[in-house]
Design a binder for these strands. Sequence first.
DNA 1: CGATTGACCGAGAGTACTATCGGTGAACCG
DNA 2: CGGTTCACCGATAGTACTCTCGGTCAATCG
Lengths: 214, 214
Amino acid sequence: MKGALTRREAKERTRQRLLEAARGIILAGGETRVSASNVAKHAGVAGATFYEHFANRDDLMVALSEQLFDELRGQLARQRREALEAPNDEEILRQEFRTPLELIAANPDLFRLALRVRHHPGTPLGESSRRLTGNTRNDIVAELVARGYPAATSAERRRLEMIADIHIAATEVLALGHVSGRYPDLDELADMLVLVTRGTRLARSWTDRTAATG
Amino acid sequence: MKGALTRREAKERTRQRLLEAARGIILAGGETRVSASNVAKHAGVAGATFYEHFANRDDLMVALSEQLFDELRGQLARQRREALEAPNDEEILRQEFRTPLELIAANPDLFRLALRVRHHPGTPLGESSRRLTGNTRNDIVAELVARGYPAATSAERRRLEMIADIHIAATEVLALGHVSGRYPDLDELADMLVLVTRGTRLARSWTDRTAATG
DNA sequence: CGATTGACCGAGAGTACTATCGGTGAACCG
DNA sequence: CGGTTCACCGATAGTACTCTCGGTCAATCG
């Protein structure tokens, strides 16, 4: 049962070794070093074996991208759902910022990777990273609607997206400061992010005045 | 004077052709296609000629990085200085957001490039992009101090950096939405960014309570 | 004008990677 | 147990790139 693996098990094990090798290389910041030959070398298999498991480099990247960000996406969604069940007071809002901050702080390499590849169009990693942000934005918009923000007109919905974008961007930039060592205290970051919501909250009372400000 | 170039002029012209070719390739999103041979081909010179002008690929990237972001950095600094001379009312704050938004909207490829390379450590483009953000952050911190935000303790100065980070991140994420076609109205974006400052402004009255929130 | 310099070039050696092909031996199956 | 399958491998053709070297010829200089 242990020393004797079936062929199928052995092959799956090799595939995971290849994925792990690629994951290690890429989280260490070596996107460009993720080549079929280099991944095979790190996984301890011959170069030709790589092509028994993946059609080409891109095929590996697709599989890896999903594996890399899927877990993070799941955790974020779950934490957000849990927070939504609680009463709607200030401390809960604060927790809603704390949990993603903690998640990021626990996975700094993965977070840096997400930032690094986000604006790379046409790459599997970029797609996956943007999907993560897109999901989060949708969740936040839904929550804003639940909190009573207007979403009747397209202008109002666009504004909710803007607010969500700002909340995400603010969270990320402070989290980056944290993993870079500049902002050590997560509580302070969460407090600051709550203040941001105090500002964006004011948009709730905007009348619909499509570009009629000047 | 026109058909007859001195040797020095001709060489400088070839160098600029190489830089322009590289610029074109890179702004089109082809970082990986910026190779000595490809740049030479696009510039219409032989591959060997590349090495008459640059020691290697990285040498070109250093020169290109400075050229690419220096102009932008200069424009940003100038606009910020102009805005600071005006009286300190709401409309001026709004203009301080509008001008960078307009600058970004006028240079979408350059903006996307800056985002794309920002988190790439050890590359000349990354360095240059981060230097741009760093300058902007310093400018904003200085302005916050001028507006009366406390900056006596290191905790207070750190908070000013956090606020500056948030203002930059919010500006950038909305600008990205604009160049992506999601947020067409720059006025609306500027209004939203002013609201963000209404939130972060509340941190001005924080007493110094180093991680003493819970 | 005659000699020299140097900007440019073609050719090519060296390197790294992709993807394929035929072979090998252990797992698998009847 | 004997034949078959297939996961893995070594070798290698093909591609793209880096960087160098020696040659060419017009600009430059005395």
